[in-house]
Amino acid sequence: MKRHLLEAADLDLADATLVLDTAAQIEAALSGREVKKLPTLRGRTVVNLFYEDSTRTRISFELAAKRLSADVINFSAKGSSVSKGESLKDTALTLEAMGSDAIVIRHGASGAPHQLASWVRGSVVNAGDGTHEHPTQALLDAYTIRHRLGRLEGVRVAVVGDVLHSRVARSNVRLLHTLGAEVTLVAPPTLLPVGVGSWPAEVSYDLDAVLPKADVVMMLRVQAERMNASFFPSAREYSRRYGLDARRMAALGDDAIVMHPGPMNRGMEIAAEVADSVRSTIVEQVGNGVSVRMAVLYLLLGGAPA
């Protein structure tokens, strides 16, 4: 493992598999126990540095760190010195001076975790940066797929929606490719980046053509505001062409699963009956997120300092 987890490309097949295996072992070790806590990272400090509101991701990392007995500091950009104009670099150096061993960062600017990693000695974990990457989300998605389907090699994954603005899509394309899955991106051309042809993924504009062959359908959140910038004409048209409703779900194979990184726009990209169906892994993904993040923190912090 590298010292930081900044993007999915930081993980080769061996590393990615190690994270998933470690997460599975941690989950097994903790299942059915009353005491859901391990002493592994006692005396180590993990800072959650969140420049964007993301309660679910922050809580997931916080729980992961606490279950490994690390001390956790939540540093939210709101109501702190950051909102008074302190630079990211000054904040990073301050946190390091206070003895942080790892910084988990969520930031609205693509690349902020990379820059942070160049300024601090401790480990940096990207918890989502702008429209770039969200590697732990991809890891928990891969974990969920492997858990449900028993494998990743050769699994056909359709990633549907706003790929252009999605850090989840970028991380998943890279990680799933590393793990041997076959990814097809499905979106209107306006929501695919120029340059998507260089990604290790197929591209389709036609959801109905892709669904029958998919083992996994990963729906991305589509913000209605995109409509105002003419990425698509209306929410209704988007939903009609790219939304997953009960009719489309019926086209899926028997074992196919439906995923969503949350938060969902029910009725927009995903219908309520799909989100709540037995195919849906949405709640499972959240639970798996804690195990996967524990694995990442253990693998980054559990050994000798680099």
Partner: peptide, 16 residues
């Protein structure tokens, strides 16, 4: 592994 007191003395170990 997750209970060892010498984790920081060696590289990270895979869990069993």
């Amino acid at each position: 592994t997750l209970y060892r007191d010498d984790l920081r003395l060696r590289g990270v170990r895979a869990l069993e």
